[in-house]
Design a protein around this nucleic acid. Structure first.
Lengths: 332, 332
DNA sequence: AAATATGATGGAATCGTTTCCATGAACATG
DNA sequence: CATGTTCATGGAAACGATTCCATCATATTT
């Protein structure tokens, strides 16, 4: 009842040729027209599918693409993954997905898994530092980072959104509206953005207003609520991701801060619900899907030499969550 | 410069034993304590990782789990995927992800890919009918459906949210509030829900109020806007998914229908932004993550006989998007 | 002490594919 | 006609693991 898979040998026998010939025909090698036709017919009749297992073992590579993301639940990473899948599909490559939870240890574990699987291409939003990523490079895997870099690993190409420009535009916009006490609500791996934030803010920078949450919703909410309570004098917030933005809106509502009257809010990453919010959220849109697609392109068309990194533009989408600094909230 | 992977042979040589012994030690077979220790030490020293390629070929199975979802961008499926990943990780199994876009043809293509990869377990939110899924069963793959069934494939175990109860509760709630003209805004593969909807509504059912969108956001918006314009007399809507709910909110806003005064809205699937909306959306919560986790459990612990299907509870979360039917909107 | 059971061990076969190489036929060129 | 070239073809060797089976040493039983 549990019949064997049809193998290349079966096809060869049925077509009256050798296995080598079948392999050649199927992978586009040279063969006489009549042989080619016969083999193809037989293969179709038997519904033959070459086993990737055999092939991979022989050619020492498992073709697949590893994709390591902090959290597939976050729509940003969802869109990124979608981009990767789109590109991978057109290349016929399978994608192996792993969620790191922004935990270097889990990331290392997943890298080990990919190595075992013989995957030879990886796209990752890295959580760990350069050390974590040493194994993939040592094993000769084509590695591409997406969305952010790993500390001390500038030898890996990356596809990034232009965070610098995004942060600068947002800060300029807020200061232009008269805001002076501007907070940054950050997440894991946003060192680069922070340095630009400080730089753009210049003399206005207030380290007490720069806070950082871990990856989870709970942590984001706790940090946002803590910030708002500790510093009722702040008038604007830049949230470094949609989870952080969500937390900010929730915390503001909980503390009866009206947006944008009491608090101006800009969020990194444009998500569908930003428009549904009231007021609709002003955001810095990032081309999440493109990031994924381009990363997949890089990792697939990896030539002999290391490809250059890619920087994709961000865009400030002005909606309704920012207002000129009015009469300062009376801190009571 | 591009050195070879360390193989089992290298370990065997370095430890002065045969490859068979190494294999036994590493997979928990019998071996004398001193040999075991020596092999383990050497393996650790050489940083040896057994290649999944070799193993899989030998045992004719690639251990991995295939996961086929309509759209990884949809947070519902994102959470589902997260559940699968969580369970797969604890079992050390890789997950191969594919996005079907709710297109049976693409689904069939992806199934073919999984078959080629030698994957022997699949979790899917099926788009196609029973015919599409014949190949996986014929090939002996352990298959489990999640979130919905494939028409004419009742021989595949499934993990479902209790849609029937969800729809019934929602309809009862709306009729209890006095609503009579209730619309259903559906998506692909919701036949079951529709039948329950009709049944629960009884004599009140109005086929013109039952509409269906394809998977995309655009399609959802178009259908919602069309419905609201065509039937200004409806007073309540049940949206069959978060994309549909989003579209409904957007379309209502565009047409100046105030929620809940002019229009009561219930959405399937509780998402974080449902609370951020104004008014906050009343939803039918589905345990997306659990669905994924349980499906992975089923597919992993698949014994000799087919496991039973699982039905998980839904919950009506009353927030602010439903109101008693007031003075009917004056259709002008 | 002889016979038998037990357990550790390594050689070799196997999985399904690709690819190297040798063979032989057909054809062109001298 | 002899020789060299091209081309289709099939046999066999990889690839890296697992696993069957035979071998041999040691321990147990009579």
């Amino acid at each position: 009842m549990n019949m064997r898979r049809t193998t290349i040998k079966d096809v060869a026998e049925a077509a009256g040729v050798g296995v080598a010939t079948v392999s050649r025909v199927l992978s586009g090698g040279s063969a006489s027209p009549e042989t080619r036709e016969r083999v193809l017919t037989v293969a179709a009749q038997l519904d033959y599918r070459p086993s990737a297992l055999g092939r991979n073992l022989r050619q020492q590579r498992s073709g697949g693409i590893g994709l390591l993301l902090p959290d597939i639940t976050d729509t940003f990473y969802g869109r990124l993954a979608d981009g990767v899948l789109a590109c991978a599909r057109s290349a016929g490559e399978p994608v192996i997905l792993g969620a790191t939870g922004d935990d270097p240890e889990r990331e290392a574990e997943l890298i080990g898994m990919l190595l075992e699987q013989g995957v030879d291409r990886v796209i990752a939003v890295p959580s760990g530092d350069g050390e974590t990523w040493a194994p993939t490079l040592r094993a000769g895997l084509t590695t591409v980072f997406a969305h952010r870099l790993a500390a001390g690993r500038d030898d890996v190409p990356a596809v990034l959104a232009d965070d610098r420009a995004g942060v600068r535009t947002a800060v300029d916009y807020l200061t232009g509206l008269g805001h002076r006490r501007i907070a940054y609500l950050g997440g894991p791996g946003q060192e680069q953005r922070l340095s630009v934030f400080r730089q753009a803010l210049g003399a206005l920078v207030d380290e007490d207003l720069i806070v950082s949450a871990r990856g989870s919703r709970d942590s984001a909410y706790a940090v946002a609520a803590g910030l708002f309570q500790r510093r009722p004098d702040l008038t604007a917030v830049l949230a470094g991701g949609n989870l952080l933005g969500e937390a900010a809106v929730l915390a503001a509502r909980e503390l009866d801060l009206r947006v944008p009257r009491d608090l101006s809010l800009i969020m990194f990453d444009d998500v569908p619900w930003a428009e549904l919010c009231s007021p609709p959220l002003t955001v810095i849109a990032q081309p999440a899907q493109d990031i994924g697609y381009r990363a997949a392109e890089l990792v697939l068309r990896a030539g002999p030499r290391r490809p250059r990194s890619v920087l994709l533009p961000t865009e400030l989408m002005v909606r309704g969550s920012c207002a000129p600094r009015g009469i300062s909230r009376s801190p009571r």
